[in-house]
């Protein structure tokens, strides 16, 4: 069974003015995310991808269609806590997600709300902080950490609730390259070592390439859905909606335009080098 299932979901935000209907942020959207997957959701600003994150754990409720989390409809209020425990969401700005004045107390916030035993909370907090590599900062005040460190604390706060799926809504958008790399590594560990389903919303192509599956959103709708190789093979389509392709794709595309016979699905630098090398030797 899918961990998150969108069935023909339509959602629109309420307008500030009365009688003015806004265009839907998500239109007739269907998607099924399986357990253990690492899915990247791509799309430019305003394509509706952040709205998906909030729909997926019941922060927002669909206008039409329904969202099922592990079989539970997000409309049912009695399942609300269970749904939020199953699907955790990490947002863009780490500053606005940290509640407590000490790192470990912030990580404990979620489990405390769930009414878990103190000794078990301690175990979860320690293991969550170790997973994201922030254990040695457990006694620090969050205001003394860098953006990347804060974002990893925010991720630890979600892991401590032991969700089966984590949605990250552009978690690296406000970070410097080092912070971005650290956060990315922590996310990959979650998926690989802990088997947590990861839905990663981003507009960085280099990060999306790391996923098993890429979903491209455009104008509130699902545009493409496939493996990174399948999605980036169609560079013209990706460009037509205002997104870039990874640099390796760009290079192989330019080379192909010059008549060099390269494949169109080369995503990693190693792959590209290997292919060029093979071509050179073949000549």
């Amino acid at each position: 069974m899918a961990i998150i299932k969108f069935e023909n979901v339509t959602f629109r935000y309420e307008s500030d003015e009365e009688g003015v209907a806004l265009a839907p942020a998500v239109k007739d959207f269907s998607l099924s995310i399986e357990k253990g997957e690492f899915v990247a959701i791509l799309g430019h600003n305003g394509s509706g991808k952040s709205t998906l994150a909030k729909l997926a754990n019941g922060l927002l409720l669909p206008e039409k269609g329904r969202v099922l989390v592990d079989g539970m409809d997000t409309v049912n209020e009695e399942d609300d806590i269970k749904i939020k425990q199953t699907v955790g969401v990490v947002f863009q700005n780490p500053d606005n997600q940290i509640v407590a004045t000490i790192v470990e107390e912030d990580v404990a916030f979620g489990p405390e709300n769930l009414g878990i035993e103190p000794t078990e909370i301690r175990r979860r907090v320690d293991s969550a902080l170790k997973t994201v590599g922030m254990y040695e900062y457990r006694k620090h005040g969050p205001h003394k950490l860098s953006g990347g460190q804060k974002q990893r604390v925010a991720i630890a706060g979600i892991i401590a609730m032991e969700p089966r799926c984590i949605i990250l809504d552009e978690p690296t958008a406000m970070l410097d390259p080092i912070g971005r790399r650290d956060v990315m590594n922590a996310i990959k560990r979650l998926n690989r070592d802990l088997g947590i389903t990861v839905v990663f919303i981003t507009h960085y192509m280099e990060e999306a390439v790391e996923a098993d599956r890429i979903v491209v959103m455009d104008d509130s709708r699902l545009l493409m859905d496939g493996t990174p190789k399948e999605v980036f093979a169609d560079a013209t389509k990706i460009r037509s909606i205002g997104l870039d392709v990874p640099q390796t794709c760009q290079l192989s595309e330019l080379l192909r335009a010059d008549g060099i016979k390269l494949k169109n699905d080369l995503l990693s630098i190693d792959e590209l080098v290997e292919n060029i090398d093979a071509l050179l030797k073949g000549k």
Partner: peptide, 9 residues
């Protein structure tokens, strides 16, 4: 929103 996601009630 973040607090709601962390089951604060």
């Amino acid at each position: 929103n973040a607090m709601t996601c962390r089951c604060y009630n």
